[in-house]
Design a protein around this nucleic acid. Structure first.
Lengths: 218, 218
DNA sequence: CAGTGTGAATATCTTCACAGCA
DNA sequence: TGCTGTGAAGATATTCACACTG
């Protein structure tokens, strides 16, 4: 019965919500808002106010009693807590439709995740330039990861190539993987894997629509 | 043909896992596997075996004691339970890099979600053809949704246009929205909204890497 | 007898309610 | 007074353990 240190175990759900808070706080900064209460932020994020206060309490005390949170300060504090007040170099494996779109998508760079390498095993794609990057053979990942100081990999291959892409990344010494391919992958415990699964979101919507149509309206 | 629900409320987490089971079961079908135990499926999905049994129990009894689950039957049963043993017509709003990639991405059609309409408000994009679809002015959503029998909308606009896109969709009588834009949107209760948030996955990976580097190994 | 289905036990997450501070 | 921070309560979700069955 290990008592998890407050700063050690943070619920996964909390991390997800912190990402939402970052999103909302950044728009608040743009709109010139200086202060926000947990109530106001809660409404904007669609969550319960005490949820927000509890989430923040895992990392420290960022608010001012009777006032609320200074938007800029809170944003910075959350970013520091998440380890995103710095830049991360990212490799993308699989230069298909989705890979290209992500390479060109500004949102990663804007948030400090810099796509510094694009990899594919298709000889027709190797050498091509996408979003200012030359597509490199996946086999050369190991060299490139070391050379470019890459810590995170993104997989955008077809499902049946996802594991191989993961293997290359793992072998190259990457620390974490974001997998956009519709397949589970296996990795050692010290490599963190996250799945971006479009399908589960669409399934969820479809399920809820079906459910609401099945239910007899009272 | 209709599978009645055993329980009224199904945890959101269960729906997410069912999507994973579908993914894994489909590869098992391709590999020609006929039977799988909750243990085997659990290992492939990275979850606890009783979790799987409990998830399935919400919808019915699909297994055979002492044997396991017939892969094909289970897949079908889950699809029926989720309401995805049919096709759904989908509209995509926002034909940028990501929108184009999703229009061309086979995974939606393969799972029965057919992108039948592409919309944008940029006059330079209207009339263009992407993945066999003519890009139509977002203002014409209402007509098109009725004409093409669209029930689900996908938003792939920039963040600051997401709410407007949502408004068009809601006004057009859509039932559910999958929002890929990095912004929260508001919608009436009878419209189901799901957020696909790349950032929270990357944040999560970055956070875990940071954490593992901070921790003092004992 | 292997492996499902399920109540009971445990663990985890969320919300409440209020003390305490600007 | 107003709003944060937080222990305690309540709600959910996960895992265990075993009765039951093909």
């Amino acid at each position: 019965m290990e008592v998890p240190l407050k700063s050690t175990h943070i619920p996964r759900a909390t991390i997800q919500r912190l990402a939402v808070y970052v999103q909302v706080l950044e728009t608040l900064v743009q709109e010139g808002e200086l202060v926000i209460s947990s109530d106001g932020l809660a409404r904007a994020c669609g969550v319960n106010p005490s949820q927000i206060r509890k989430d923040l309490a895992y990392f420290g005390e960022f608010g001012v009693r009777g006032v609320g949170y200074y938007v800029q300060d809170l944003l910075l504090a959350i970013k520091q807590s998440l380890g995103i007040n710095r830049t991360w170099n990212v490799a993308l494996v699989g230069v298909g439709n989705l890979g290209r779109a992500l390479l060109r998508h500004g949102v990663f760079r804007r948030r400090g995740f810099i796509l510094v390498g694009a990899f594919d095993c298709d000889p027709f794609k190797i050498g091509e330039e996408v979003a200012g990057l030359e597509v490199v053979c996946s086999r050369r990942l190991k060299d490139k990861v070391a050379e470019l100081d890459i810590e995170i990999g993104m997989i955008t291959t077809p499902a049946d190539r996802a594991q191989r892409a993961a293997n290359y990344l793992i072998e190259a010494g990457i620390r974490g993987i974001v997998n956009f391919a519709p397949a589970r992958i296996s990795a050692p415990d010290n490599v963190f894997v996250e799945y971006v699964d479009f399908m589960h979101h669409i399934f969820s919507v479809a399920f809820n629509i079906s459910l609401s149509q099945t239910k007899i309206p009272s």
